[in-house]
Nucleic acid binder design. Structure first.
Length: 205
DNA sequence: AGCACGATTAACT
DNA sequence: GTTAATCGTGCTC
């Protein structure tokens, strides 16, 4: 495996559902101390528009959601439950709020670092959740509004492998317990099946 | 200024 | 299956 192409801003300008599907199989890369920590994306969720009551943009443009109204190819990183960071990528056109939540990756590089940050956890649970990924890759507030298409970006996405439709499952987004229908059940979650690093609640679909 | 709650996780029983 | 942890955010007063 040689050097791989980084996803250009055009990739992130596409419709959120398409971007969420296409991100499966791509490689999320975090460069830290000149070292690569990476993993193949295995699970995503799409959030788009103020009418999507599961999206933070249901409240419109606020200090937190500002980045989602900006140009595509930027990171939206937010804090929740008093302790967890979540990584999203802004997609679609400037002015229309949409983002893709990265919920699962299959670790490839920087395994020792990932293992140390996920101490006392079995490898199958190192990065099978959105907050687990941020902990393993040391992603926090500092990456909010970061340009992931910049040449010197420390967080970016590479074209990894193509995942056939036969290996992809869709279902309702996770954790939207108090969100009204149809948003609670709309199948905007995408995940690769037959990978060992899926989220634990695959069986819920 | 105060309040309710969350795109979760890990450790329980 | 249940629950504590823990605080930024957006909403109401």
């Amino acid at each position: 495996m040689g050097k791989q192409e980084r996803l250009p801003r055009d990739f992130f300008s596409q419709h959120a559902l398409k971007a969420a599907r296409q991100l499966l199989g791509m490689r999320l890369v975090r460069t830290e101390s000149q070292t690569r920590i990476s993993g193949i994306i295995t699970e995503t969720e799409a959030y788009r528009g103020e009418e999507d009551l599961g999206c933070h943009c249901r409240s419109g443009r606020t200090p937190r959601t500002r980045v989602m109204y900006g140009p595509p190819g930027y990171a939206y990183v937010y804090f929740t439950y008093g302790q967890h960071w979540m990584l999203n990528f802004v997609v679609e056109g400037e002015g229309y709020p949409a983002a893709i939540l990265i919920r699962g990756i299959n670790p490839e590089e920087g395994i020792k670092t990932i293992a140390s940050r996920r101490a006392n956890q079995p490898s199958a649970q190192w990065t099978n959740g959105p907050a687990k990924i941020c902990k393993a890759l040391n992603i926090d507030k500092g990456f909010n509004e970061a340009d992931i298409c910049a040449p010197d970006a420390l967080l970016y996405v590479e074209r990894g492998c193509s995942i056939p439709d036969s290996c992809v499952t869709t279902g309702p987004r996770v954790g939207l317990n108090t969100v009204p229908e149809p948003w609670k059940s709309i199948p905007w979650r995408f995940l690769v099946t037959d990978y060992p690093f899926e989220s634990p609640d695959v069986s819920r679909i």
